[in-house]
């Protein structure tokens, strides 16, 4: 066998074989790792979890109801005319994460938001009129004191963003379906 080396002792036949074999082996090993990692992502049936319906007649004006959708609490709040007015009047400049109230509701009396504080995931208080609701009249997070207004927008940190809106639609005047937009 001839193994010619150039002056720098580089690029021998063996170096070439080592590099190519190593490269092919690494690609193989990495592609073998992928299925095991991907198996920890949500499974097809978890992603396909059904939508839920909420009966609105049960929720008196001024309170909210918390329902569980795909393992996540959803706040459905029946707002009073005063709360609606406050939410609509708030100047955008004053907000941490500016968004109009109109853009956040389908019908002004009903606010539907994901009930998970955008700071670190606690469930804020304020669903019952007797709960502490903070200075903005919406919700107060017990964990680190974030406050939300009657539109679910953050008005006092440390939370960085508003409570998100889940996909939902009105089935009729008294029922909403969470988890679908239109069908």
């Amino acid at each position: 066998m001839t193994e010619k080396k150039n002056k720098k002792n580089l690029h021998t036949r063996r170096d070439f074989l080592k590099l190519t074999a190593g490269a092919v082996g690494s690609v193989g090993a990495l592609s073998a790792v992928w299925p095991f990692m991907d198996s920890m992502n949500p499974a097809a049936d978890t992603l396909a979890q059904a939508s839920i319906e909420v009966d609105l007649t049960e929720i008196p004006e001024g309170s909210g109801k918390t329902v569980l959708w795909q393992g996540t609490p959803i706040f459905v709040r029946h707002r009073t005319p005063k709360e609606i007015e406050e939410a609509e009047k708030t100047p955008l400049k004053q907000l941490i994460d500016p968004e109009t109230d109109k853009a956040r509701v389908q019908r002004p009396e009903w606010l539907v938001v994901v009930g998970v504080c955008t700071h670190l995931g606690c469930v804020p208080l304020g669903q019952k009129p007797t709960d502490p609701r903070g200075d903005c009249g919406g919700w107060l997070c017990p964990c680190h004191g974030s406050q939300y207004d009657t539109s679910g927008r953050v008005c006092h940190g440390p939370a960085p963003t508003n409570l998100p809106i889940p996909p939902y639609r009105f089935v009729d005047d008294n029922t909403i379906k969470i988890g679908v937009t239109d069908d």
Binding site: P35, F36, D38, S39, N41, A43, A44, D45, T46
Partner: peptide, 10 residues
Amino acid sequence: MRDVNYGWLI
């Protein structure tokens, strides 16, 4: 076998 990503393979 059916729903978990690559579950069949594993």
